[in-house]
Computed example of a mutant assay.
Amino acid sequence: GFPALVIIAAGPLMGLAFMAVQVALFGIYMGGSFAPNHKGMAILPKDFSIDFLRRQTLTSRNISGGPVVATGMGGLNFQIEHHLFPSMPSVNLRRARPVVREFCRERDVRYTETTLVESYRIVLRYLQRVGLKHADPFECPLASQLR
């Protein structure tokens, strides 16, 4: 209903332009909220045998930064707790954080937390490592078949 309302209120051309900008900005915002929590973390094969706690803590990272970061990320800065307790309201994840950290420390389970700026550095290093910048395009199996 929202797209129809926008098109009716703003007209077809302006309504579609508004929707395109709105969807693009929302995508950038969501990518900016999700990428810092997972990119550059361990990628485990589906059949890899590991307990639930380790699977969630090894593949996620928390973002520190206080209330400003928590508000900007919609509570997803507590990604480890979010994965361990997916139905917990995001406003309560910060309360679970000290309990989860201590639980992980007692069991020698890695609990990763970093700042927002450092997490973006990690993401950029990861993307650089896996991107074409560090790969020879002629090492591609399909390209070698065509030579």
Rank of each mutant, 00 (worst) to 15 (best):
L84T: 01
L16W: 13
T112F: 12
S64G: 14
T112A: 12
L16N: 14
G15V: 08
L53M: 13
A9P: 04
S64T: 15
N77C: 12
R95L: 14
D136Q: 04
L58E: 10
G65I: 03
P98Q: 05
Q79I: 06
V100A: 01
I7F: 01
R101C: 01
P12H: 07
I8W: 08
A24G: 12
A10L: 15
H83C: 07
A70P: 00
V99M: 13
D136E: 05
V68Q: 00
V130T: 14
F48M: 12
D136P: 01
G75A: 03
L142M: 13
F34P: 00
E139P: 01
L146K: 15
T71E: 00
H82I: 02
G1W: 08
E106G: 07
P141G: 09
R94A: 15
A10G: 02
L132H: 09
T59N: 02
H134A: 06
Q22G: 02
M41T: 07
F85A: 11
Y111V: 11
R54Q: 14
F18P: 00
L132R: 14
A35D: 07
F78E: 00
L44T: 08
P98L: 04
T57C: 15
Y29Q: 12
A135D: 02
L127N: 06
P86K: 07
G131Q: 05
F2V: 14
I122D: 07
L25D: 02
S49T: 12
A70N: 09
T115W: 00
L5T: 13
M73C: 03
Q79K: 08
K46E: 10
H134E: 10
G15A: 06
A24R: 07
A70L: 04
F26M: 13
Q56P: 01
R107F: 04
Q79V: 08
K39L: 12
K39T: 11
F85E: 02
G40I: 05
R55S: 11
G40D: 03
E81Q: 11
A135Y: 05
S60C: 12
N37T: 15
V117I: 15
G32V: 05
P12D: 07
Y29G: 09
E102K: 15
R129Q: 09
R95I: 04
A4P: 01
L132Q: 09
V23I: 14
P141F: 06
S119Q: 05
G131Y: 04
Q79S: 06
S119L: 03
V23G: 02
V23M: 09
F103I: 06
E118L: 08
F2Q: 08
F138K: 10
E106D: 11
P12V: 10
P36W: 02
A42E: 13
I28E: 03
F52A: 09
K39Q: 11
D136C: 06
P36K: 02
P98E: 02
V6Q: 04
T57E: 01
A42D: 11
F26Q: 13
G72A: 13
A42M: 10
C140R: 09
R107D: 04
A96Q: 05
L76I: 06
P141V: 07
Y120S: 02
V21Q: 03
F34W: 10
Y126H: 15
E102G: 09
K39D: 06
L116S: 01
L13D: 10
T57A: 13
P98I: 05
I122F: 00
P12M: 08
V21T: 12
V68S: 00
G27C: 11
I7H: 00
G74W: 03
C140I: 08
I7E: 05
D47W: 09
C104M: 08
Q128T: 14
M41D: 04
